[in-house]
Nucleic acid binder design. Sequence first.
DNA 1: AAACCCCGCAACCGCGACCGT
DNA 2: CACGGTCGCGGTTGCGGGGTT
Length: 316
Amino acid sequence: MGRPPCCDKDGIKKGPWTPEEDIILVSYIQEHGPGNWRSVPTNTGLQRCSKSCRLRWTNYLRPGIKRGNFTPHEEGMIIHLQALLGNKWAAIASYLPQRTDNDIKNYWNTHLKKKLKRFQSTFQPDPQASNATTSSSSSLNSKSMNEDHSFYHNNMVIPIQPSSSTSTSASTCYASSTENISRLLESWMKYSPTSKTKLITSDNHDHNHNNNNNDENSTNYNGSYFEKDHENQFKSILSFDNLLNNNNKIVVTTIGESNEDDTNEEVEKVRDKNTDKINDHDQINPPLTFLEKWLLDESTTSRHVAEEILRLPSIF
DNA sequence: AAACCCCGCAACCGCGACCGT
DNA sequence: CACGGTCGCGGTTGCGGGGTT
């Protein structure tokens, strides 16, 4: 469909957002909820196109976004999901509820791709890995563990540093202005008399996942926009968190035991399924897919592989 | 200290999917 | 069914900061 570019109009501002613009946008969404982006610029007076507003919200201002350093666990998830799904960043992001697809995409392009490239150039491809590529699913290649605790990813053999705890540093690095905006908005939302919402942060969402009481209409986040898209997001977080108990043990309740022999078929199915369906926001608390099990189930080698990724040498 | 280079990330752009009329 | 409007996704760009020479 030929659609005129929304940003070609005169008077439309481009480039970095100012704190003032952020506040205007957030306060509007606070009141009206996300969506109907077309009307946002006109209703707020922002000299921005609707798309820019939506992007700013979804990639930056939206509550619940975790910014800054990716944990090794997240790295591992991304690597394996990318191997499974390809560059379906939105699909990958759905497994990392606190990360945006843009963030994941950037992190992949700037960090992980280089890591894997260096692996490729540093270490000779293992013949077993080459053989493995003849199988139907490259994703399974990445699961293959070597005797020396290396593993394969897309035809590459990746050595594992045998040791060390898994760092889960929560440190973040923001542009100072962003940090200020963040603080500003957080306190604003916290103390706004009209606000019934509060920010979901990486710190507090953990406390809240116990609130999942199967009542789809009752969450602590009953502000207007949480009643729409972000309720789904929140549920997504809940759903994700509910896979883990406090000890990060996996609770698999909605999928039966999977036979390793079925893995190829299953992964292909999952690849198709996730590619097509995973972006569907109507899927609230979807049943645990094989992929989720594959990623999270401690009883499979994939779990170990994901954990091993956490221990990748820092030089990569 | 200055110039240059490299890298990371926020934002933009184009396209396709979806939906309503 | 065709068309137009809106939204979301993935690829790409360009700026700014940090590192290097």
